[in-house]
Each structure stands twice: as structure tokens, then as C-alpha cells.
Design a protein around this nucleic acid. Structure first.
Ligand SMILES: [Mn+2]
Ligand SMILES: [Mn+2]
Ligand SMILES: [Zn+2]
Ligand SMILES: [Zn+2]
Lengths: 134, 134
DNA sequence: ATTTTTATTTAAAATCATTCTAATCTACTT
DNA sequence: AAGTAGATTAGAATGATTTTAAATAAAAAT
């Protein structure tokens, strides 16, 4: 994605195309699905020679999530992950190397669920399949 | 459960029956399924007039988990939950009141899972169904 | 029963991911 | 170019959890 395409993407989502957001968006939206943490993204930023603060990484990840460009995943290894695959899907969590692998939503069927309590509605379903070596 | 039954339970699991462990075990294993956090258990302890430190609550919850008396649930509301239902099962998470409700393992069917990466094995499957008001 | 050993409890400090603060800076508007 | 709203940042704060190390209690040995 060119810098001008990244700029457009940000504008389309109501975000000012700052130097920092352009840098992070071009790292994140490179066409390959990515699972990142604030820390892993910070390292990639550093490796790219870009300089920006950790607070900006957190701010930006949350802003991208609010804008629908990322999805937040909690419950894996005590840190928050962000996923460039914003479609509904699930995850293998490989605990030996702390990597995530997508599982298509169509792989999981839910049936005979107890009826949801009165006045409540299902807001989302998250499945984590934990993997270990062996 | 009587104090002597609680003592036996602890001994059977290789845990010294201390005053604190007996108190916590009798609160936790009252016959009803329970989902607790360190903080919620601390409040119940306080309400019962028992005095013991938060560090002991954390220690004991982890020891009970290691002994197979509790199951740890992560990924819900940024704090760790402990479940007296140690059978494989899943959860509704009611985000409006932060309560957990059990879903029997038999309610969930998983099919067409992508093949697990070579050398890896499935270690557990956790499903969280998020509920909101409405 | 007394001593000795080993495990447990505890208050307080430390940790660590994340959020907040408030000062500076930058993008956009006029 | 100047003004304003929004963004970035260093560093402090937060909050759940873990660690430390000293005091206490349980089990084992005498
Ligand atoms: Mn994060
Ligand atoms: Mn906890
Ligand atoms: Zn994913
Ligand atoms: Zn449960």
C-alpha cells in the first residue's frame, strides 16, 4: 500500500493521517493477516527505524479498533492482541511459541446452547483452541 | 461440608489443612457451582468475619487449581476467575453485570477444524459467549 | 512433650501491561 | 499566516497479580 493509499484509508475512517498513523497502518495493513500486541508492534516499528512512543502505539491500536480496522482479542497470554482480520473467526493459540492462527468461523458450530437469560442478547462468540507441543 | 470433611479434602490433595485453607475451601466448596475472583472471594471472606490476607487468597486459589479443585478462567473482564466446576465446559459472560453462567461442553460442536500444525496437539478449547442487555 | 524441620502466612514492595496527565506539537481550517 | 482542534509524548499513575523475606504454624523427629 502506497503512502497516499494509506492516507486515504485513514481519512475514510475519520482519522487524521499523521506521520505515526501512516507508519503504523502501513506496517499493519500490508496485505497479510497479522496478529500483533503493542509490544510486538513496537519492536517492528523499532526495526523499521521509525520513532514513535509506546503511548501512541496503544492509542493508535485502539483508534484503529474503534474505526473497524482492527479487532481486539483478549484472553490470550495476559496481553491484548490486535488482529487485522476483522471478520468473525476464531483462533488456535500455540502456547509453545505464543502465536495465533486463524480458524474460520465456519469451522465451529454451536448447538443446544442454553437459552440466553431474559433480556439478554448474544453479542459475540469467541473460541480459543489451545495448542501445545507433542 | 463439615470442618473435618474439609480437612480430609485438603489432605487428600496434598495440602496442609491450615486455618486459612479450611476457611476458603468451605466457602468455595459449598455444593453450589461458583465462579469467583480473588477480589470477590476476599469480600465473601470479609463478610464471613474471617481474617486473612489477599496474598493468601491468591496463593490458595492457585494451589487449589494446581490440586485440581478449581479451574482458572482467563480472558473475562481483565481479571482471573476461578471456577468450582472443574469439568470441561464453556461460559456465557454477561457483560452487564459481569456474571458467568456455565454452558455444558455438549452444547458446542466443533467440526472442520483446520488441521493442527505438525508436532502440535490440542490442549483445550474455551468458548466464551458474550451477553449484553437488550 | 520438646525440639527441629518444613510449609504457610503476611505486609509490604515490586512487577508489568496498560491508561492517564498535561505539556508540546501538528494537521487542518479560515 | 494565525488560530483551533486534534495528536503525540514522557513520564506518572493504575490495578491486578506476584514476589520478598520475616513471622508463624503444622508436621516430623527426638
Ligand atoms: Mn496490547
Ligand atoms: Mn484472580
Ligand atoms: Zn485472527
Ligand atoms: Zn463455569
Amino acid at each position: 500500500m502506497t503512502a497516499s493509499q494509506t492516507t486515504d484509508l485513514l481519512r475514510q475512517h475519520g482519522l487524521r493521517p499523521t506521520r505515526q498513523r501512516i507508519a503504523l497502518a502501513s506496517l499493519l495493513f500490508d496485505g497479510h493477516p497479522r496478529h500483533v500486541t503493542a509490544e510486538s508492534l513496537k519492536e517492528q516499528v523499532k526495526a523499521s527505524g521509525i520513532k514513535l512512543s509506546l503511548a501512541t502505539i496503544y492509542n493508535t491500536l485502539h483508534q484503529f479498533t474503534a474505526a473497524g480496522l482492527l479487532k481486539e482479542i483478549k484472553g490470550i497470554s495476559d496481553v491484548t492482541w490486535f488482529d487485522t482480520n476483522i471478520n468473525s473467526h476464531h483462533h488456535f493459540w500455540d502456547t509453545s511459541n505464543n502465536h495465533l492462527i486463524d480458524i474460520p468461523a465456519s469451522s465451529i458450530t454451536i448447538s443446544n446452547l442454553p437459552k440466553t437469560p431474559a433480556g439478554k442478547v448474544i453479542n459475540g462468540v469467541e473460541v480459543i483452541v489451545r495448542l501445545t507441543d507433542g
